[in-house]
């Protein structure tokens, strides 16, 4: 599809902010129109990068699970080990979200677990998790254009 959805949304963002919002009479409507323009910008950003962000995040989290598996035991080890072996095959955003949510839940559990363990390996896993969370936050950052 050309123009792509993000091009359409960015075009709408500009029109909403520069043409429509300033010409509305009601203060609240002007603000809402500008805000809808910003949402169109965010949607365009997400259209372009949404799948890439989720796949990268999922890969990062799975790598941590593979790193941690050998240090765990019992049910947690089984679940972490299984999650570490997976890979994304369905690249619809909805499918990637299902995988991403499951991996995030398990990451939270693993993170809480290693925080309670007094061992060098636990600190290393903890550092890997915090580094991955930093990268995740940067991948999902939204730079709003200065208006």
């Amino acid at each position: 599809m050309r123009p792509e959805a993000n091009d359409l949304l960015n075009g709408g963002f500009g029109t909403m902010l520069m043409d429509i919002a300033p010409n509305l009479n009601a203060t609240y409507s002007t603000g809402s129109a500008a805000m809808i323009g910003l949402l169109m910008y965010c949607a365009g950003l997400e259209y372009e990068r949404g799948a890439d962000v989720r796949v990268k995040e999922n890969d990062m989290f799975r790598a941590i699970f593979r790193e941690a598996t050998g240090h765990l035991d019992g049910d947690l080890q089984n679940r972490v080990s299984a999650a570490g072996q997976g890979m994304d095959e369905d690249f619809h955003i909805s499918a990637l979200n299902v995988a991403n949510d499951a991996l995030r839940e398990l990451l939270i559990e693993l993170h809480a677990h290693v925080e309670e363990v007094e061992a060098k390996w636990a600190r290393e896993i903890e550092h890997s998790i915090l580094t991955a969370l930093n990268q995740s936050a940067k991948l999902r950052a939204i730079a709003v254009p200065q208006l």
Partner: peptide, 12 residues
């Protein structure tokens, strides 16, 4: 609406 590992780490 989704799991928040960063918020959960902060809470702990």
């Amino acid at each position: 609406l989704e799991p928040h590992p960063i918020a959960r780490a902060a809470i702990r």
